[in-house]
Design a protein around this nucleic acid. Structure first.
Length: 423
RNA sequence: GUGGGUGUAGUUCAGCGGUUAGAGCGUCAGAUUGUGGCUCUGAAUGUCGUGGGUUCGAUUCCCACCACCCACCCCA
């Protein structure tokens, strides 16, 4: 128990961290090129923020939040998603008064949901996400989706599909919901238990119910896309035109609804086709034009998405895209005899100062064992410092590929090694 | 939250109601005097997931709990 990570959490061990660093570097790079700047928000927030932001009828809020009282009797909650915290930051620092649009991203943001863990699903996972505030035009939706898509394809992921939909706005959605309820009213008895409850609370959630009975009842149901108001329709058309222009392949799926209450107009998901199982969502997002105002800020449109980093890594692992083990040192300096120990440490530090990935013995091993260890470290050059070398102020350099050995003076060693390693 | 499966060295896995529980890989050491990858030899490491029960005796059978995996639900 003591030596076991809590249920649903996962360690990043040394051999795993390289993969994280690869995706993080890509995220930073693509965001920098697209004008998104990094933000970091707290791991926990006042519970109220999520009740009002995410929506208190959602599954996330109703049964999955890590909520507790702190010692000051405040109710706080570990972030169950990334957007609410960023909006809170926007309001607190009045970032909405800056030049718009404000384009932000976060990565390795911990997200907590109390759920039963299984492959690709954790109680703590980490999200990469982007948010753009102030821009109402569909080109920004498309730009974000392109960012997302290009990130994933750039990482080498295959078998992805992008699904988009529009769920309307406060003007047209009530009309659609009324139509849908009218359509379903007679079929209520044939819906599953959860959907019976959804009928009054949030009838659109029935659309993406996975149960076959419900899906059967939805045959011939009105499509939200037929009920969009002019503004929403123009926006959705504009999104499709923009996506086509930047060559992002997409499918329209009128059944996408999403589990968070704040979405308006655009919603989208990126799925990966998994063999023998259901497709896994690696990320999803959409537009939330009413959220900033709902949380007490000015009326300001917004759009964003969140991506599960563990899921991307999982897909990369399954598709053989993770980097192999990296070497830990380019140069290993062997210590031969105790009188060489401190000079070896000194030389190793000098090599490091010269930008060389160098290491030396800290185990008191035999020379042979030091060579074996150097080999395991992936050293391209092994240096030896012993009595013979110390007597002449030199160090022996052995090229581990060609087995050639040369001796150079201690002072020349950094430059000689830089040359050999072509740094 | 519901249903099913699994749990034995660091790791991948054998094994059996009965003596000191095994193998491959990994780790460490050695194969003479200052030199790696290959090979050979040897060594260390297990409360057999945890706690109960059945039994003369349990790692093996039963129950509970914990963890992981799979499906559902939900979602990233």
């Amino acid at each position: 128990m003591l030596t076991q990570a809590p249920r649903g959490t996962k360690d990043v061990t040394p051999e795993l961290s390289a993969g994280w660093q690869v995706i993080e570097a890509r995220m930073r790079d693509i965001c920098a090129r697209m004008g998104y700047r990094e933000v970091r928000t707290p791991t926990f927030e006042h519970t109220e923020l999520f009740l009002r932001g995410v929506g208190d009828t959602t599954d996330i809020v109703q049964k999955e939040m890590y909520t507790f009282q702190d010692k000051g009797e405040r109710s706080v909650t570990l972030k169950p998603e990334g957007t609410a915290g960023v909006v809170r930051m926007l309001l607190e620092h009045k970032l909405f008064a800056e030049a718009l649009p404000l384009k932000l991203y976060y990565l390795y943001s911990p997200v907590f949901r109390y759920d039963k863990p299984q492959a690709g699903r954790y109680r703590e996972h980490h999200q990469f996400g982007v948010e753009a505030f102030g821009a109402a035009m569909p080109t920004v939706d498309a730009e974000q989706i392109a960012l997302f898509w290009n990130l994933l394809t750039g990482l080498g992921l295959r078998d992805l599909s992008l699904h988009i939909n529009s769920i309307g706005c406060p003007v047209c959605r009530p009309t659609y919901q009324a139509k849908l309820k009218e359509f379903l009213a007679g079929k209520l008895d044939h819906l599953c238990g959860t959907c019976k409850g959804r009928f009054d609370r949030n009838p659109m959630r029935i659309l993406d119910c996975k149960s076959p009975e419900c899906q059967a009842q939805l045959e011939g149901a009105p499509s939200v896309l037929d009920c969009l108001c002019e503004e929403c329709k123009d926006h959705f058309d504009g999104l499709q035109a923009a996506l086509a222009t930047v060559n992002i392949p997409f499918e329209i799926d009128p059944r996408i609804v999403r589990g968070l209450d704040y979405y308006t107009k655009t919603v989208f998901e990126v799925l990966t086709k998994e063999v023998g199982g259901a497709s896994l969502a690696v990320g999803a997002g959409g537009r939330y034009d009413g959220l900033v105002e709902q949380l007490g800020g000015p009326a300001m449109p917004g759009v964003g998405f969140g991506m599960g980093m563990e899921r991307v890594l999982l897909v990369m692992e399954r598709q053989g895209l993770l980097p192999g083990p990296a070497n830990v040192a380019d140069v290993f300096l062997c210590v031969q005899g105790e009188s060489a120990r401190l000079p070896a440490l000194q030389l190793t530090m000098a090599l490091r100062d010269a930008g060389i990935r160098a290491d030396t013995d800290h185990m008191g091993r035999s020379l042979k064992a030091q060579f074996k260890y150097a080999d395991k470290c992936g050293a391209k050059v092994v240096a030896v410092l012993g009595d013979e070398e110390l007597a002449t102020g030199q160090v022996t350099l052995r090229d581990m590929t060609t087995r050639e050995e040369v001796r150079v003076s201690l002072a020349e060693a950094p430059a000689a090694l830089q040359m050999k390693l072509s740094i």
